[in-house]
Design a protein around this nucleic acid. Sequence first.
DNA 1: GGTCTGACTAGGT
DNA 2: AACCTAGCCAGAC
Length: 115
Amino acid sequence: MGSVAHKTAVTLQTPYQRIYATVRRIPPGRVASYGQVARLAGLRGRARQVGYALHVLRGDDVPWHRVVNVAGRISLRGPSALTQRIRLAHEGVACDANGRVDIARFGWRPRSRAR
DNA sequence: GGTCTGACTAGGT
DNA sequence: AACCTAGCCAGAC
């Protein structure tokens, strides 16, 4: 059948592109975990790959600051962690005294698409 | 080729 | 609560 055309269409987007597309869907004022992004991108279980994809990002085309770990903590170390915290605060997402984002309050819960 | 690292996570002790 | 382990996989060396 049209297996070749189908395969081509699926392969058109690399895993990284799917990750970036998913992160771009996170609305301002919301956060998603690495594992959640992986799942939504069709890459279940590859949370580390999401971290690496964001790590190698250049520029600000992707709102990488809206991704935190599953505990609500900022996983970055160094000055970039402060950048992330500031950007989140600018969107109304504050960290508590322990440096955590309240996932119950700010976690992104997309209505449609894969959980 | 092998080995190690990391912006991860779930599950167990 | 902290700590450990397995699973994950692209890069770096």
